[in-house]
Amino acid sequence: MKSYKFKVNDNGYTVNIKSHEDNIINLEVNGTLYEVKMKEEVKKSKTPTLVRAASQRPAEPLKVNPKSQKTRIVAPIPGVVLSIDVKVGDTLKVGDRMLVLEAMKMENSIVCEKAGTITAIKISVGQQVLHDELMIELE
């Protein structure tokens, strides 16, 4: 099977493993046969497999209350405001881009989900915003 060469205190040893069954190994050391009984059976190590649990609940899309008079646009993620594409008094329709938010080196366009008029802008370009921080108000 396998052959090994050892040197202990300037003495050379050639070890040949003849057989391995359960916890008993038959080997030959410099021509002499030995039967060695191991304390435990030699087990092959396995690479562990990483198993991730599924998310407890799926991510919810941003919802706008259609009956409320004021609509609050909040930061969906923490980031830095790169540009503001609207000003107070602008009338927007659904899908119009309001601002660009940079998070983790990615630019995220924040678009209008309910038509209305801008009543307040609570942020400025270059400002860092936290998750759920108020950015724009619509009416």
Rank of each mutant, 00 (worst) to 15 (best):
A103L: 04
V64K: 06
T14H: 15
Q56L: 13
G31A: 11
E21Y: 15
K63H: 09
N26A: 09
V100R: 00
I17F: 04
V15E: 02
V80E: 09
V29S: 05
R97L: 10
V42C: 13
E137W: 11
V88P: 00
D85Y: 07
A115Y: 05
L82I: 05
K43Y: 02
D10H: 14
E28F: 05
D90R: 09
G126W: 00
R52H: 08
K44S: 05
T71E: 04
I84C: 07
S55H: 14
L138I: 03
D96E: 04
P78G: 13
L33G: 10
V74K: 15
G95R: 10
K105C: 03
M104K: 06
Y34G: 01
E41D: 13
E28L: 02
E40G: 05
I25S: 10
E107M: 02
Y4S: 02
S109F: 09
D90G: 09
R97N: 12
K7M: 13
K7S: 15
G79C: 00
V100C: 01
S109T: 10
T91W: 08
P48K: 11
L138D: 02
D85L: 11
E60P: 02
A120C: 01
D10S: 11
H20Q: 13
G116I: 02
L82Y: 06
R52S: 06
S3F: 08
V51N: 04
I25V: 12
G89S: 05
V88G: 01
G12K: 15
K18N: 13
E35T: 12
K63C: 03
N30A: 11
T71Y: 04
F6Q: 08
M106C: 00
T47L: 10
G95W: 14
L92V: 01
N30I: 09
I73L: 08
S68Q: 12
S55D: 12
D22Y: 13
V100M: 03
L130H: 12
Q127L: 01
C112Y: 04
D90S: 07
E137P: 04
N16Q: 11
E41R: 14
F6C: 03
V8K: 07
K43W: 03
L101S: 00
I24L: 13
E133P: 05
K7P: 06
A120G: 07
L33K: 15
V42Y: 14
L130F: 11
E40L: 11
V111G: 09
N65M: 03
V80W: 08
V88Y: 02
H131C: 11
V88S: 00
